[in-house]
Write a protein that binds this DNA or RNA. Structure first.
Length: 509
RNA sequence: GAUCUCGUAGCUCAGCUGGCUAGAGCAUUUGACUUUUAAUCAAAGGGUCCUGGGUUCGACUCCCAGCGAGAUCACCA
């Protein structure tokens, strides 16, 4: 065995591993029968009658050891929490001596009985001690102190954000409270799925590898299929495939899936992220708004226990109904200007007047977008539906039934961020073709985020799609809001990080 | 992509306007200790000071470049 590149602690643990094997201890047995979780023991223990917990077995990782000669206290951590274990030479005989070859980080099984120590902590006294997995790497576990009020102070735990994201397994061990965020994330998705399933909408799967990408304006990732010798794109949205399924006769389909966008990364953007898209036939965006507020209210209640949540000091209410505002009314309210029907030149002049910086060559849409971002968005703190967007901004949305130049679209904003985007889906094939051809022209003019023309999708719309309402929800952003996290990296187990350069890579350059 | 800040032991950090052998606590090792709880007491080992250049008699410290991270902005839903 080579110890090259290992530090003293890593070498010592390998030596201990060999010693254990020599003593006939299997450091990696196949299974272990657990009767209780730590939390079960703590909640079920009774001082009056300890017989219920007189023969139990628990298992977990050693996270703290206090050795006092022929008796040792340690804490083990399992999925549900931590519990103290009491080991005594008299009880364990030579197995007690093996314990000196165990380390913080090792996973052990403990069979024994629950009791309360002199100082009052419910603990498990071991009659049988089993090593379940020897740990070969020191784990950066901080010591903890719990005061009379049960407030836990942790010292020196792994704090470096980079390490926490790159080695999430260590983060989860050393900072187990972050599990709550991920458990809530799972509950949010489960609640959403349950809501849709109860209404009879079908969960489906559509291709991630696509010969053409579409459904959103974004730059894609490109990959290559060897056997077909073609370029394939990682999807940027589910929209065009889900609509094909509505054309095919399904009347409610949804997909919870990863999308991939080849763009910048920051607090609210990860190159791969989770979105949910739902399409329901014979409905429009008004119906969809009502569904959305009911959905989010339901999710908040099921995942957070109520419709009121705290986000970094702001009290948010997900109690339906949400505020609704037309986009142009919001412009009027926050800029004092009526931008309806304004020409590009007029918009440009207004932007300058409002001190909103825009490129002189910017399109009307770009200018509107800028003014909205700078002057309106940050006012939308509580959940707010912004309705009725200009047609040019929304090539897949249906023209508004009463207002020309607009489409039946809404976006849901919370804390100034977009959480959902929905519209009455465009099902007029002629109109759809013209809009996508316009996108092709914009693309040809150099905007590589404009949509690609997908003939097969147009063919599907020509076959005939019923009136349909569709929505996309950014799951990560929703989870951020409901778990009080302001960085997307804290709601993803494994956020994308720049790979660390190896020594070899460095010397090549 | 731009700017600012940061990178020292397994972990958390100190290290002055450049100056002796780079420190502390935890973790680790050895010894003591059969109800401890940030256990305690005694001793010991452990460093590519992010990397590579430069300035200097002398660099953890100053300068340049690079790598990585965080924050802000830009881009982007």
């Amino acid at each position: 065995m080579s110890f090259n590149g290992l530090n003293d602690q890593e070498i010592r643990r390998r030596e201990e591993l060999s010693k254990l094997r020599e003593l006939g201890v299997n450091p990696y047995p196949s299974s272990y029968t657990k009767s209780h979780n730590s939390s079960d023991v703590l909640s079920q223990f009774s001082d009056e009658d300890a017989s219920a917990l007189s023969d139990i077995s628990i298992a977990g990782r050693i996270v703290a050891v206090r050795k006092m000669g022929k008796a040792t206290f340690c804490h083990i951590q399992d999925e549900a929490g931590k519990i103290q274990v009491y080991l005594k030479k008299d009880d364990l005989g030579e197995v007690y001596d093996h314990f000196s070859l165990f380390d913080i980080g090792d996973i052990i099984g403990v069979k024994g009985y629950a009791f309360r120590t002199k100082v009052g902590e419910i603990s498990v006294r071991a009659t049988v001690l089993t090593l379940l997995a020897k740990s070969l790497t020191p784990i950066p576990l901080g010591k903890e102190e719990t005061d009379e009020n049960g407030v836990v102070t942790r010292y020196d735990a792994i704090a470096d954000k980079e390490q926490r994201y790159r080695k999430r397994y260590l983060d989860l061990i050393a900072n187990p409270e972050i599990k709550a965020t991920f458990i809530k994330r799972s509950k949010i998705i489960t609640a959403m799925r349950r809501y849709f399933d109860e209404r009879g909408w079908l969960e489906v799967e559509t291709p991630i590898l696509q010969p053409l990408y579409g459904g959103a304006t974004a730059r894609p990732f490109i990959t290559h299929h060897n056997a077909l010798d073609i370029e394939l794109y990682l999807r940027i949205a589910d929209e065009l495939y889900l609509k094909r399924l509505i054309v095919g006769g399904f009347e409610g389909v949804y997909e919870i899936s990863k999308n991939f966008r080849n763009e910048g990364m920051d607090k609210t953007h990860n190159p791969e992220y989770t979105s949910m898209e739902l399409y329901v036939a014979y409905k429009d965006y008004t119906w969809m708004m009502e569904m959305t507020e009911d959905l989010l209210q339901t999710i908040a209640m099921q995942a957070c226990g109520g419709t009121d949540v705290d986000f970094k000091g702001t009290a948010l209410s997900f109690k339906a109904p949400f505020a609704r505002a037309k986009m142009y009314d919001l412009f009027q309210e926050h800029t004092g200007k009526d931008l309806r029907g304004a020409s590009r030149e007029a918009l440009y002049a207004i932007a300058r007047e409002l001190h909103v910086e825009v490129e002189p060559s910017a399109s009307s849409m770009k200018i509107l977008d800028e003014i909205f971002s700078e002057k309106v968005e940050h006012h939308l703190v509580q959940p707010t539906f912004v309705m009725d967007y200009p047609v040019e901004m929304s090539p897949l949305a249906k023209a508004h039934s009463t207002e020309s130049g607009l489409v039946e679209r809404f976006e849901l904003f919370v804390m100034g961020k977009e959480v959902a985007n929905a519209f009455s889906e465009l099902n007029d094939p002629i109109d759809q073709r013209e809009r996508l051809e316009e996108q092709s022209r914009i693309r040809a003019d150099g905007d590589d985020e404009a949509m690609v023309l997908d003939e097969d999708f147009l063919n599907a719309i020509e076959v005939g799609m019923p009136p349909t309402a569709g929505i996309g929800v950014g799951i990560d952003r929703l989870v951020m809001l409901l778990t009080n996290n302001d960085s997307i990296r804290d709601v993803l187990f494994f956020p994308q990080m720049r790979p660390e350069k190896t020594q070899a890579q460095r010397s090549e350059e």
